[in-house]
Amino acid sequence: MRTYTITARRDDEHGSHAGVREGLVVLDTSLAGRDDALNPVELLLASLAACMIKGVERSAPTLKFGFSSVTVSLSAERQDAPPKLTAITYELVVDTDESDHRLELLHTNVRKYGTISNTLAESVVLSGVVRRG
């Protein structure tokens, strides 16, 4: 079993920050919103995107899958009462010369072995596609 820890602190009424090791993330916790920070939903989506990109990095050597870049675009649907996300969709774009079959195999591995994607898939509809860049 692995444990993760992070600390977040309110700076003032305009925002907060979170950090671990040498990393620091500015958080939009202001009621007015901020253009220079990620709000909680955006942070969740960024976490999922990072998980998927890391999944490509982790799966590629095992599959001997060649690629030059990865981009993930995500969108979340939120209901107001009670406030929660009801669906997350994504598009995983991989710049590669690999076959369509191998691209789908990579996608399967990214979905199957992603800590964040597996966690979210149990609580919200998580759907998406992979395509060649």
Rank of each mutant, 00 (worst) to 15 (best):
L38M: 12
L38F: 09
N39M: 06
N39Y: 10
N39F: 10
N39T: 06
E42R: 12
E42K: 10
L43A: 06
L43K: 04
L43R: 13
L43Y: 08
L43N: 14
L44N: 05
L44K: 03
L44S: 13
L45V: 15
L45N: 11
A46P: 10
L48H: 11
L48K: 14
A50C: 12
C51P: 12
M52L: 05
M52D: 00
M52V: 01
I53Q: 09
K54H: 07
K54Q: 12
K54I: 08
G55Y: 03
G55C: 10
G55K: 02
V56C: 07
V56L: 11
E57I: 07
E57M: 11
R58F: 06
R58D: 09
S59I: 01
A60G: 01
A60M: 03
P61V: 01
L63M: 14
F65G: 02
F65I: 07
F65N: 01
G66H: 11
G66L: 05
F67P: 04
S69N: 15
V70F: 00
T71R: 04
T71A: 09
V72P: 08
L74K: 05
L74W: 03
S75K: 12
S75W: 05
A76P: 01
E77W: 07
R78S: 08
R78I: 15
R78M: 14
Q79L: 10
D80A: 15
D80P: 13
A81N: 08
P82K: 06
P82N: 08
P83I: 12
P83L: 11
K84H: 15
L85Q: 02
T86E: 11
T86M: 08
A87M: 07
A87H: 09
I88K: 06
I88V: 15
T89R: 13
Y90Q: 03
Y90G: 02
Y90W: 08
